[in-house]
Simulated assay, not measured.
Amino acid sequence: MFPKDQGYFFPAEWHPHIATWITFPHNDHSWQDDKLKQMYPEYFALIKAISQGEQVRINVNSPELQAFIESQLPAYGIDPAKIEFNVQPTNDAWCRDHGPAFLVKADSSDRLVVDWEYNAWGGKYPPFSDDNALPQTIASCLSLLSVSPGIIMEGGSVDFNGAGTVLTSRSCLLNKNRNPHLTQEQIETYLKNYYGVSQVLWVSDGIVGDDTDGHIDDTVRFVNANTVIAMVEPNVADDNHAVLAANLAELKQMTLLDGSPLTIIEIPMPDAVVIDGFRAPGSYANFYICNAGVLVPIFDCSQDEIALEILRQLFPDRPVIGLSAREIIWGQGSFHCLTQQEPAACV
């Protein structure tokens, strides 16, 4: 039986968390040595913010890396009691994509890990075998059952409303560098069976600078069961304008399981984030919803406050906190890409 048949489902990100998992960066896959050091203050600020409301469980590549992190916690005002370590070989930092997908069951204490395969966004950044092994390792550490669908799937490519619907993009999940043997219909069947959803909604593409082939967590995100934020680019000369306009047009044609249309809230993109001649995929959609609040990447431009104010109106029940991501984004991802929530059971 599939997880869906047993009543399991992937909850919305605003479902209460036991912890957040991250994989601490340690090599130059995403940040060269000097860039790695420059991004540490932003990375530890992210850890501190999450730790205000839940445990932060950190995959670390070695005992030496654990010792380094522990030595830094006092300087950043982080309570060591809120930090736990899982010492295992790792390749890179993007836990959203290589981390475990935790499922829960209504009115039950049962939880389950889905161990999707991971190939570093179509084999772009080998080696990735250590990261691919992490979900199974974590499931064993937590004494949780796990299932392995046997196909490539990344956490940043999907977003959930917790009420039976998942959003994704054709440019990523239908890319021949992921699962070339599968049709769109077959991929939808995997999503439904292993994430416990009943509906798959598709947009076309992702933003400039996104080396994941168009992850949804840079473009469209659920903020409640029937509302999404959609990134838009008002500047018609910008390369993101047409792509995001096309996605928006598609969203306006979509309906949810009950037949109602999506409520769509538009958020303007930040100014282009160009570092060393490279345009990074800066986007306010890459926020992370944790127990302590909604952690939003900001980029030192005028749109920052516009995005934060919109999100404050959409999340009246929790703080919306802007944190600098100008150094982190050089690695081509941000807060949502770096994190994976471990949801609490439903009882």
Rank of each mutant, 00 (worst) to 15 (best):
F278C: 13
W330G: 11
D304G: 07
L308N: 02
P281S: 07
C346Y: 00
G331K: 06
I306H: 11
Q341W: 00
F287V: 08
I328Q: 02
L308R: 08
E266Q: 12
R312L: 10
L338E: 00
D271R: 13
I267T: 04
I321F: 12
D271S: 10
A272L: 12
A345W: 01
L295R: 11
Y284T: 02
E266Y: 01
S302I: 04
N291E: 01
G293L: 03
L314R: 08
L314F: 03
P297L: 12
I275S: 08
R318Q: 11
R318C: 13
M269H: 09
Q303C: 13
S283A: 12
G322R: 02
A345C: 13
P268T: 00
I310N: 05
I310M: 10
C337N: 11
T339Q: 04
G322C: 05
L323E: 01
L314E: 13
P343H: 12
L295P: 04
T339E: 00
V273R: 13
Q313P: 09
Q340A: 11
I306E: 03
G277P: 12
E327W: 02
V274Y: 09
V294Q: 06
P270R: 05
S334L: 13
P270F: 02
A280V: 00
G293H: 04
A272F: 05
A307E: 00
S324H: 03
Q313G: 15
C290A: 09
A292P: 07
N286Y: 01
S302K: 14
F278H: 06
L338G: 03
T339N: 06
E327F: 06
P297T: 03
S302P: 07
S334A: 15
P281A: 06
I328C: 08
L314D: 08
I310D: 04
G333L: 03
P316N: 09
D276L: 13
V320K: 12
I275V: 10
I289S: 15
V274Q: 08
F315I: 03
I265N: 11
P268Y: 02
D300Y: 02
D271T: 03
R279M: 08
P268L: 10
C301V: 05
I275K: 14
P281V: 04
G322D: 01
W330K: 12
